[in-house]
Design a protein around this nucleic acid. Sequence first.
RNA 1: GUCCCAGUAGCUCAGCUGGAUAGAGCAACGGACUUCUAAUCCGUAGGCCAGGGGUUCGAAUCCCUUCUGGGACACCA
Length: 557
Amino acid sequence: MEKNREKIRTVLASALESACSKGIFPKTDVPDYALEIPREKGHGDFATNLAMMLAKPLRSAPSKIAKVLIQEIELAESFLERIEVAGPGFINFYLQRDWVHSELDLILEMKDSYGRSEIGEGEKIQVEFVSANPTGLLHMGNARGAALGDSLADLLAFAGYDISREYYINDAGNQIENFALSLEARYLQILGQPAQLPEEGYHGEDILETMKGFVSSYGDRYLQSPGIDRRKAMVEYALSEKITEIKKTLEDFGVVYDLWFSEQTLHDSGSVQKVLDLLGQKGFLVEQDGAVWFKATRLGLEKDEVLIRGNGMPTYFAVDIAYHLDKIQEGFTKIINIWGADHHGHVARMKAALQALGYDPEILQVILMQLVRLYSGGEIVRMSKRTGNFVSLEELVEEVGRDAARYFFVMRSPDSHLDFDLDLAKSTSNDNPVYYIQYAHARISSVFRQLEELGSSLPAPGTADISLLVEEQEILLIHKLADFPNEIIDSAKDMAPHRIARYLHELAGLFHSFYNAHRIICDDSRLTEARLVLAAAVQIVLANGLGLLSLSAPEKM
RNA sequence: GUCCCAGUAGCUCAGCUGGAUAGAGCAACGGACUUCUAAUCCGUAGGCCAGGGGUUCGAAUCCCUUCUGGGACACCA
């Protein structure tokens, strides 16, 4: 189908060129026009708005232009059956019917690579997501980021990009100091010493558990140690435990990273200092009120930003610049960060910093997700890490299962607030959209099991007569299947995995309609063969799509 | 006050780089299981695309403006 699209583009370009050289039109470049598969079946296999796009530059009516273009296209010997001008100036293309044969055969031949694209051309892209502070458990916002980031990474890889999934570990700075004080307080409490958790400390139960473990390993050995030493030991212990837990939780959620990157290494390697020097050389530093500032206002931002605080410690921002610079120097030509909407203020200054360093700020693409609201029994469940009252990702997976959880997070655009309905996700009923898709896959498996019992199997490649598939539901299904490669490309360009979720739901719906209207294994053996090929193709595309979202494709339900 | 996101069917949301008659799921109502899995399907109903201006062959989509909801505006991250 993608080949057909390219062919039509070529045909259109040469038609325009021909009309220009004949003097019918003044010389014009081909504009950026749309060539899409129309929603309405009455509008052909493809439709373009090219004539409308040319209306202005050619100073002529769209329908006139369309007529001229059609006349310049030679139909004989072509893969096209018919071309027509419709509506306000659309050109509709009807392909020779035999393209459907080749598309279904192609799907069966390519199997799990059907839909794979090369548009990425191997471009190196880093996708950084979750990157939650390793001081606690993962919450709903992190879970959304995990599902989104992982599926986006899969999608981009499928579209031909060279992807690295990375987790940036905030294992340095202020919150670690704070973390240390909380650990210390818990430690002392466990050993019966008077101690108070800091006001802004970590009040979660999990920290208490961690320190119980610490005590059972080390006893009261650190009771007499100097504060600095024992806090360092506790932080090391707790961080390592927390990171292991986070890693495990994410793996159970189907997310595996290529790199866990420690913030501390940026301090240790001198990267932070280096980036400050660079900004200084470019004249973007200024000292004021005992702090060092980044002159963001020079690049049109509202205010300057502190890089080094009065106490000599670099801010998170300073370290983050070093981090991004590090990634660029590593060879990434695009950096995709997934952040919660509460970090949106960070976007402009981060881009400004890259610009100040002499890089194209568009290297950095930030996807901001709106926050998640969790509903249970019709009520909002409040989440706060500090007070320790929240549902963790771990608990979520336990409760609703991985498939439902991942689907729910990725079915919505990141721009929309996500109301996560725990009861709905938990329900194994027909309300739950993820099962709707998986059920289509399982049903097809069931048909093939049935077939096997009859001592039969899928016909050999190319032997089925696909032209027997003439029912409306069959034609719609084939068109939808053929659109999958293009859906991948568009979704990748948009960085929008939720489009895949939607596509799958639509495909499953078309299949269910077909399944209910017609028997696959029927009295007519030639028709049975053709429908088996169709069913097999549907199953492949469903499995490929489900795979991109890291959802299972069950054989039975 | 400035900035970001959202406002589309009763509810949750697609569609937003302008295109042909604005879609889906849920909820409602009426139907379909002696037939490959009814976790399914078929049908009915449901809309001043928040309001108002503008841009043009054409606007849910772009621009301006008002209103409503959420978020951000630290020597926190």
